[in-house]
Amino acid sequence: MSAREEILGRIRRSLRDVPSGESPEDVAVERGYRKKDEAPHEEIVDRFAEHVAEYRATVHRVGEDELPAAIERALRERGVGRLVVPADLPEGWVPEGVEVLRDGADGHRLTNGELDRSDGVLTGCSLGISQTGTIVLDAGEAQGRRALTLLPDYHLCVVREDQVVGLVPEAIERLGETVRTEGRAVTFVSGPSATSDIELIRVEGVHGPRTLEVLISG
């Protein structure tokens, strides 16, 4: 008998107490928790900004038309020379004077080595979650594949105010479609990577980008 058959057989024997007519839905699941943050959107965005900042990420609020200037300033202050960007990053976001490594440009996918040697990456995002200060990446528009936001040491991320949702259930619901139909990978980023493995003292930056900077644009 294959391992598969044997394990499934063991499970069925172990579950003899479960009536044969019972279907999974017969086991009641009471979803009595909050599904949506009913606060005004402005408040939800404010809280998002606060919660992201509490993870020791740098957060700026900027108007839509101030965005390019804000990006330029952030990159200059950080001293970014070689900037990784996804193929479909909006043209207007990329400032003059930095060397741009565009993933997939001229059919060339950046190698892990190139990503590793870059000074930072600039992306958009799929969603922001106010409740937890989480940025959601799903390889969709202006985000690129996962390695882009993983290997560079600095991640500058643009979140539009209308991308911010209130609670975790709102985000999970919005992502369901992408996962179900396209099977795209989803990453939740809540602050820079961190460890508390040594004496429970929080240290930022173990493996992902050690610095996360977020521009929330109107």
Binding site: Q131, T134, A185, T187, F188, S190, G191, P192
Partner: peptide
């Protein structure tokens, strides 16, 4: 924490 730093979901 409200959320851990990284969560990966892949399909």
């Amino acid at each position: 924490e409200r959320m851990n730093p990284y969560t990966s979901f892949w399909t």
